[in-house]
Amino acid sequence: MTRLIIRRLLLMVPTLILVSLLIFALSQILPGDLGRTILGPYATPAQVTALNHKLGADQPIAQRYLSWAGHFITGNWGESPVLQQRVFPMVMQAFSNSLLLAALALVVIIPLAILLGVVAGLRKDGLLDRSITISTLSLTVIPEFVSGVILLVIFAVTLKWLPVTALAPPGSNIFTRLYYLILPAIPLMFIELGYIARMARVGTVEVLARPYIRTAVLKGLPRRRVIFGHVLRNAMVPTVTVIGGQIGWLVGGLVVVETLFGYPGLGKLLVDAATSHDVLILEAGVLIVAVIYMLSNLTADVIVALLDPRVRQRG
């Protein structure tokens, strides 16, 4: 088990190097360039060329990559040439905002989705199963920009129960911040709920059909012990894996929700950095998202191993 964790952590290093190389290469094929972004559409080509030269943006890509990587590893994340702000605090601020929103969404989603999924699985094909499946699936298919706007119009504009923006005033405590995040978290719950609940349902249905469950029931175990001791533990395996894969998206991919709710998170920061050729912010942000992806997948695998001894022995 420990060996598995150490091996996976070590594997992260080459993965991150590959990701950082890929971003550097991809940022080269985006239309436009750094100097043009900073100087705007009215600057002459000569002005743009001069600025690109001054910023070193015209040097060979390999040279720029090595220089960036050297600084990045030593903790010097540099200053964004576009925004003239230090990269580290900007990215970390956005990251902590994203993390808070993702955490709020997950705290609600995980128990609720598992509960609904397992209940539906136990009542397979019954009325309860049908209504849970249909309602969670219909919520999942609503894109977040649609559900977000509808929620804003109802709860922020018309009823005025909740704030229209997701960012609490500066200096607010954690409860105020969470209050501001209720509305933006709901579209995320809609999307994830159906997905995770469906996984939990499938897991439950599959496990219920296994011979060892029949044995457990036939040897007279109480229904509660069958469900909690045998069904749940085994049914959770695919669900945990799916949740692990969704965390990276919840942290770094919420461009639409962040834009609609005016929330300065990592997703919007990355999109802006990509369109403005701000490679320093792009690299830092994407690497953080990559680390989150790998860590959440690793955590999911560890939990699966704890749930299933066979996985543990293989590892």
């Binding site: 504009v157 704030p163 609609l260 919007k268």
Partner: peptide
């Protein structure tokens, strides 16, 4: 100044009186 990254967001903020 409150920055709105998107026109739809700005419309909603105006309607909500934010």
């Amino acid at each position: 100044f409150k920055f709105a990254a998107d026109d739809a967001a700005a419309v909603l903020q105006l309607q909500a009186g934010a």
